[in-house]
Each structure stands twice: as C-alpha cells, then as structure tokens.
Design a protein around this nucleic acid. Sequence first.
DNA 1: TTAGGGTTAG
Length: 619
Amino acid sequence: MKSRSTSTRMMAKKKFGKGVEQLTIQSIPHHKHSEGSAMVWACMAAIDTMVASGFTVGKSPTVHKDNLHPCNLLLTEDGACIYLSSAKAPKYTYAKLDSLKAGSVVNVYGVVVFFKQPFKSRGTDFCSSLKITDHSNEKIGCTIFCEKLEDHPKIFRNGDIVRMHRVKAQVFNKSITLVNTFGFSVVTFDGVKGAPVEPRTSSRSFHFDPDDQRTVEELRSWAASQALFASVTSTVPLSAVQPKAYFDLTCQLLAKAPVDTTCTLLRVWDGTRCPHTLLKVIVEPHVTEGQLSFSKERENLIADVLVYDNHVEVARKLKPGVFLRIYNLRAIAGSSTVPGLTRSQLQVDHLAFHLHGGTSYGRGIGILPDNSPDVQELKRYENDEEALSELNDSDLLEVWKTPPESLVFNDEHFSSVGWCLCSERSCGHDMQKVTLSEVKRSGLGRVHHVRAQLKAYEPHRLHEALKLYCSKCKSMQDVPDDELLESIFSEASKDCGPCSPPPWVLSGQVSLPRHAPGPSNRALTVYLLTQLMFEGSTLEEMCQLMASYQNIIPVRASGGHLSLFDLSAPFLFRALGIQPLQFILLMKLELQDATDTLDVFLWRHAVSFTFLLFGVRWD
DNA sequence: TTAGGGTTAG
C-alpha cells in the first residue's frame, strides 16, 4: 500500500457517520512492525485533510468485535508523521439567497427570521424548520432533518445567524427551499451587534476563518438596520406578562410533574414577580421531580406552566435546574379549564400558563446553555431575589416588597416637569439601541433600549427612596418625619376658624387638659362623625362593606383590647374624601451619552435591583 | 421518509 489510490480504495470500504472515513491508528512496539510502511491520504467529511506517513498497515485484530475497518495504521517509532493540512482545507464559498438554483447543493449564511425548535417528524428524524434572509432580502425557508438533536441548528432567538454547509435547493410551492443533504453541518452565532462571535455547534471541528468572522459581523450590522422581525411574540419576563398574550419566557425549571398522558406541569421562575395572581396546580408529591415545596416568598415567584401533547415528550427529558426558553407560551386569565387541578375554586380568576400542542408560531421548548447571555441575565435577577429573601426580616423591606396594587403613573404628570418616566414594560433584547437624544425626540409612550453612562443618582439611601403615593390624584411625597409632621400641624393650626361642617357631622368644643403644653384654657373645635369598626372581617368582606358605608376601620382583639391593624391594612374615610396613600419606591438616575443627558425614574422592583447593583447603603 | 411556519380550544 504505497500509493494514494490504493489507500483511498481501502478506506472506502468502511464509513463512519455521514461522509467520515476513518482508520484506527495504533502505536505498537518496533519489533512488531509488519507489512511495510505506508503513506495514507484521508479526507474527513471533506473538511480537514490529513496526511499520515511512515505508518504500517496491519490487519485489525478487533474487526469482528468492533465491526470497524479491517485494517489498522500502526505507528512506528522511526519518523512516522501526521500532517494536518489546515492550509489545504477547502475554501468555502457561500451563495447569496437570491441566487439559489433548484437542484444545486450550496453553502449559505443567513439571519434567522423564523424558527421552530426541532420536533419529532413522522419519520426517523427530528425536524427543524427555519426561515433565513440576507442582504438580498430574499427570505428562504429551510428544513433540516437530523436524527440527533445536537446536529440541529442551535437557534435561540430571531436575529441569530446560521451558517449551513451542503444544503440542497428545492422548489416547493413555486418557491426555493433549502433542505440538508449529505455532509450537512450548521453553526449558529448570536446576532447581537458587538457580541463575541462564538460558534454554537456540537461539532468537534469546523472551519472558521477571518472571512467568516467578517461575514457574521456584516450580517449583524445589516440586520440591525432592517425591520426583520414583525414577530407577534417576544421574550417577556413574568413581571410584564399580559393576560391573553402569547410570549416567549426565559426561565429556570425548578420542578416538574406529569399531570396526565397529554399534560405535564413545569414549575418555573425567572426572578421577577408577576403582578397577577398565579394559578397553582395540584400534583401528587410522589410524581414530582425536583423540589416539592418552596418558601412563601419563592412560591410567589413561581409560575406553573402546563405543557400539552407533543411538548410532553420534550418535557419528559428536562431536568430541574435547567434553563429554558418556552416559545409561544400563552397566559390565560380567568381560566377554569384545569379540571380537578386547582387548589380551590377561588383560583378561577388566576393567571394560567399554557403551552398548547403543536408547533405553530414556533411553539416549543428550547434548552439554553448556562453560558448564554440570556441565562447570565436571568441568574442576576434570581440572585437579587435570593438576596431580598435573606433580608426579609427588615420591616422596611417588607414594605418595599409589597408593591401597591394597580399602581398607574400618569405620564403627563411627569412629562410636565421634563422627566422621562420608565415604567415597568417588556422589551425584547433584540431591540436596537438608540441614543439619548433619539429617546428625547421620539415622544411619549415608546419603549427603548439605551446604553449610557450613569452620571448621578439619587437618593443614596434606601429609606429616602420610599415615597407616599396617591393612586387617585397621582401625587407623590416624601414619607414625613417628626419634624415635617410638626410643621404640618403647625401650619394647619393657623387656619383655625369657623366653618360649616357637613350636616351629618356633629360639632362642638372641648377644652384642653390643664397639663397640656401651650397656652392654658385653650379650647379646640371638634367634629364627630360616625365610624364603623369591624372585627374579624376578611379583606374581601371589607371591600364589600366599603361600597355601603362612609367610614370603616378594621380592628382586632389584641390581649383583650380593641386595637388597630398595622398601617398596611386598608381603612376608609370616604366622608372627607380621604384616600389612603400607598408606599412606593422611587429612584432617579441621570444618564449621559455622546448625544445628550436624560433623567430617568426607576420604581418598584427596578429600584431594589439598582440598589443592589450600586451597593447603596440600606440604612 | 420526515415537512413544506401562520396559534389550543386542555
């Protein structure tokens, strides 16, 4: 076996995988050399060329056991060499998507504008369906059949960039489509401009040179300038979920349990708190995989997701702890369609999450690798929540973690003082970043991504971020301290004088006790109004009573005495139009970039995360 | 071979 043609013919007897021809290389002691030396030329999947010289060809002693090639290459100790011919690696050329000819096998680059996670076909393979585009603006559908999931494109979001080798152009419904063919391989890249160009692939080796780097960066830049994704779904955290909406959820799986043959429960969280009350599904503890129960604080952050039909098989393979993106998840409020599963009938108005059967609109479950930027971001949120839980003893924190319900800011109020209001909104991370001056020019009600430098922020102490907010008139004020309270009373005392009280109020005079501070013999005007104090009522009952009575105060029996609830309990003085104030957290950031500066308000959870981020004092 | 994007109806 001295010639290249001989060796090539020999290797063709056996194939391993698709297009890979292989001989085993063994090292043996010098005295066992046999059958002369050989120079062998091998081509592995037409990618890497290897030249091996000074080897001995021998019969494989294990051919009947391993069913591999009948010959071995035996490595001698006298100058045998292997030449890995990276310089001779074929130079790939890539077809533009508007130049595809039916029947041709090509290599292509493209920006993903639609994709489905691999799903089981009716045949032997998993099937990936995607649509890609490039500078030509042609959009080409692609169908990838591979038996192994790891051979499929690792696409996580629209905008990702794929490079495919050896796909065949076919005509279907008068349009060109691409289907994988013999020797197919695919590599995927993050589509975010400026992100590292790191290939996602399970291949042990693949071709990548500076031209590829340039191509990826050019496609990123081009895609950023195009409106490519008119997608109806987007990645939304639990804190921004809207009932009835379809959305993509990036989350961590905490536990799972089969519900029946067509439905599996996934218990997930993303570190954010959904403002809606979430439906909780009952399952038998012995069928639950993962943690069975959680603290009350954590439970409030966990979403129960019901996945159906074809997704049950995918869910079966998931391990608790894994990071997921659930595509085309649906939030449904008022659901009573989980028979026998709800903990009580009171859950009928709670928010349920369903991953319906089928793959329409990319519906499916994808596993995110731990090193993906999305997972890193998720971990930051989750860690923040962990930190908050540990500090749960603080009264202040309790107030902080109890955001008022239905808190709605009035945009006009803030725009009138020239400040930009950043309310809690969802935004896809594939949004293009804009400059601060563009934000200022774009008007109210828009959602933006900006990258800017923090110039200043206030307050510097957490307790100063706590404000009192009126949901009725939208006003906001500092929490009064003793000094402020004193000045409020002092100011009000100057306005004392005769007035006409409402007819349902009794009025009179009382003398201050002799030992009271201030001038002696002072008399104060008093007004008496009827108040109802209720003991033992539920919140719901209190709310019902408020519709019928003017003034209501909830009370309790404490140590044999009548006492008030703590200040967080609602009370009502409708007679004088009093509206209980709510605690909120507010923080102001001053941002700057090359184009402008911008004052930004953060509120609710955004403040807590920012304080943690800045290491601001908690006292 | 398979699928060939375009919502379950729990």
